[in-house]
Amino acid sequence: MTVPSDMERPTDVVRNSVVVNANTGQATFIRALEYLAPLGILATLWQALSWLGVLSSKIVPSFIAVVEAGVDLLASGEIFRHLIVTIYRAEAGLLLGVVLGVALGLAMARLRLVYRLSYPLVALTYTLPKTALIPIVFLWLGVGDASSIFVVFIGAFVPIVITTYHGAESTPEIYVWSAQSMGMSSRRVLWTIVFPSSLPHVLNGVRIAQAFSIVIAISAEMVASYVGVGRFIYVFGEAGSYNYMFAAIFIVIVSAFALDQLFIALKNRLLRWTEFEGASDE
């Protein structure tokens, strides 16, 4: 089995090819405008359909109503309290998953025994839809931070083990041999050769894991929670305040997008020394 590692290339390419290659400020602005224009068209279309009464305001509030509700949510600041809880759960679980997942992935690549012992278990849990764990973890750890973080952790850990393992396995043997022939200890080989060379794969894996972490955290909150944006959105839905519900959804989407962009920036910074340019993973 493989991790579909070519998953994260596309958006980079889509984005890079359209926005990133402008030289002057004005050109950048025009390009950005040209790039974002389709979203403007969709918003206009939405508002027009609402005005014409094609979209019933009971089912789909108009775009302007949603924007107004969004301004209201941001101004009152209540959504931030929930957003912070959700992001904390997603990122804490992700961090745990990255630290332990990278450790196990590297160990699996370097030590045959670890590989033989853990591969079947990892392969078995890799295909498990992680949200299925939510009910049992709620039973064990109760509803709250601990259970959300735990499910997110499992959801991040297993794929990161696999990407790290594949990354470390693909370290060119010649680097390892030359380091060994110069008398490098196997621990140093691991940290100065194998780990850096697996880093592009690991970071691609972490990017996918971050997207899943947010989904899992929100899902757990929708199933049962006292705080968090999943709960926040769900309550608006139940109460029938659809303009607020859509506004909250959009704020969450923008936040998730921002987190993804933040991670891409971090990834590019960490990989400055490689030929890796975000778009290719070879």
Binding site: E34, Y35, A211, I218, S219, V229, G230, G237, I253
Partner: peptide, 23 residues
């Protein structure tokens, strides 16, 4: 041109938040 920004935003999008809307 039309789908580039839509796909770029939709890709990391936590669509599960839309569940109440779809319901």
């Amino acid at each position: 041109w039309f789908f580039s920004p839509i796909v770029a935003i939709g890709f990391p999008l936590p669509t599960i938040t839309l569940l109440p809307a779809f319901t």
